[in-house]
Design a protein around this nucleic acid. Sequence first.
DNA 1: TATTATT
Length: 376
Amino acid sequence: CFQIKYIKTLNQVIAAMETQLSNGPTCNNTSNGPSTISNNCSSPVESGSMEDSKTNLIVNYLPQNMTQEELKSLFGSIGEIESCKLVRDKITGQSLGYGFVNYVDPKDAEKAINTLNGLRLQTKTIKVSYARPSSASIRDANLYVSGLPKTMTQKELEQLFSQYGRIITSRILVDQVTGVSRGVGFIRFDRRIEAEEAIKGLNGQKPPGATEPITVKFANNPSQKTSQALLSQLYQSPNRRYPGPLAQQAQRFRLDNLLNMAYGVKSRFSPMAIDGVTSLAGINIPGHAGTGWCIFVYNLAPDADESILWQMFGPFGAVTNVKVIRDFNTNKCKGFGFVTMTNYDEAAMAIASLNGYRLGDRVLQVSFKTNKTHKA
DNA sequence: TATTATT
């Protein structure tokens, strides 16, 4: 089932960052994401050549639902940003989980590495490091390695591959329950040439002490998989009654713009920034966040049932409750219903996407529930 | 036997 995991609340980012700023970065590369032995969070600042940028950072392992504006807000707390970009899939608009932050002042870039590298955001531990100069030679340098001895450590894996070049990241996948190696992993080299040489030298070879040969090949391109998954999703349910990913993407950019405005008029990391969104959007301030965000859905057909509300809103995130309001005598829908969603941003996304949506021969009106009573 | 690192 296609799911949009949209942004968490800004407050979560703020809370995580404030914790981080008071405690300092947590060095934890084992819980999430690959790392290199030589370039982990204890020494993220590498000495680069004179030509390397001292202001441009690459940020990896971002939560899937983090927006560019959140990225900008988070890193803007360090210093003035010249530019900021969250990299998205060209076709689907889905975040690829990394982005770039270019500061005006090199000192701020260094401070961002020291402050934000290793920051935990949701289930991720972000990595902040200097971006290498963009070049075709550093693309497609990621290798997939299988058939590894279960006893091989990440360090041993790096030692095996380091003879072919500079390793950017390495990872051995482990069973989530037992933590034992699954015998497969990834090696990202600095340059594609190095990866090619490693394939020539190590594919089909037995590592020292191993009884079985390993397989070394280029890793699948992640954006391809994402596109395929989303496209198959499109074809899988041609009669879907809610918008597909592309329609949602368009709405998403609208919401991004609203967030951008909100962030601009409110002091950074103000807990009230979210309310800025609602007022700027001309949306009534929604009801209590404690029990979730209540959404009013109007112009449902008489035969509408709860399942249609689950189908429409579920793809946008956590839905805790749906209700179709029915006439006591006829048991037919009175034309409206309610949906409760846990997370503000997912609710806002659902509203932005579903308001005005045509369901059958009716055009829905979807908004946050107001304090007014709704008399049809 | 598959995570998301070059705009």
